[in-house]
């Protein structure tokens, strides 16, 4: 397999991915979709855009995380001088950077990545606790995408809902594997109850030994529920 294919973005830059922390101070000017913005140098593009009211689809991004997971593959943009579309969550802004959030190529990639995620997501918006606040619904609305699987095969997850916690429940079939819950569990709540286990199509958020959350060392603090962009972790009514 290719493990030597050097620079995969076609840009000649092999600097560290900048972190947002310590990004204050110098401001740089970037252009997004023909409009100029002043943003702190070193900020990553996704957050610079969102801060300025420019929406870029995203699920897995965590602003405080120094090494972005870059797993959801939704935040692609075109940057002038780059050969290929780039994930905006990993790209630090630079003076004079010219960015397009929409193009034929980007739109197709986002549309297909979105349908891929839906093909593996229990679509039941009417009855979902996240109806109205779901990030998938937001992406669909912003990009004019349909909330259904049209061309692809439906790959349903057969897993029971974990109703064991007192105030919330976890439905693995709605999980988009963004990993935000695991991040807050480890870094904010500092509990270490859940993790991303197994791999490939088997990858999932689970507690040690794949027990229910009530059987695990979960403290039911609810941080993960706040972090979930969809209805996989949801408060009970």
């Amino acid at each position: 397999m290719s493990n030597n294919n050097g620079n995969n973005n076609g840009n000649k830059d092999s600097n560290n991915t900048g972190s947002n922390i310590g990004g204050k101070g110098k401001m740089v000017t970037i252009t997004i979709d023909d409009k100029k913005y002043e943003v702190p140098e070193g900020t990553r593009l996704l957050w610079a855009a969102l801060e300025n009211g420019v929406y870029i689809p995203h699920l897995c991004g965590i602003e405080e995380e120094e090494k972005p997971s870059a797993g959801c593959r939704l935040c692609f943009v075109e940057i002038e001088g780059f050969l290929n579309p780039t994930t905006s969550c990993t790209q630090p802004v630079k003076e004079g950077m010219i960015v397009r959030t929409r193009s034929k190529r980007i739109d197709r990639m986002v549309k297909n990545a979105f349908e891929l995620l839906l093909s593996n997501h229990r679509l039941n918006c009417g009855k979902c606790a996240a109806n109205g606040s779901c990030e998938l619904q937001k992406i669909a609305k912003e990009r004019g995408l349909k909330l259904r699987v049209s061309r692809m095969r439906k790959l349903d997850i057969e897993a029971p809902v974990d109703d064991s916690p007192e105030n919330f429940s976890y439905d693995p079939a709605k999980c988009v594997l963004c990993g935000r819950c695991v991040w807050v569990d480890h870094n904010v709540a500092k509990v270490g109850a859940i993790g991303l286990v197994r791999r490939g199509m088997g990858r999932k958020v689970a507690a040690f030994g794949e027990t229910t959350l009530a059987e695990s060392n979960c403290t039911q603090c609810g941080e993960c529920v706040q972090a979930c962009p969809v209805g996989a972790l949801a408060m009970k009514k």
């Binding site: 480890h186 509990v191 270490g192 109850a193 859940i194 993790g195 991303l196 286990v197 197994r198 791999r199 088997g202 689970a206 507690a207 040690f208 030994g209 695990s216 060392n217």
Partner: peptide, 12 residues
């Protein structure tokens, strides 16, 4: 480290 982190490695 959290037990679940060992489990992640063991199942990967």
């Amino acid at each position: 480290i959290p037990e679940v982190d060992v489990y992640s490695v063991g199942t990967f």
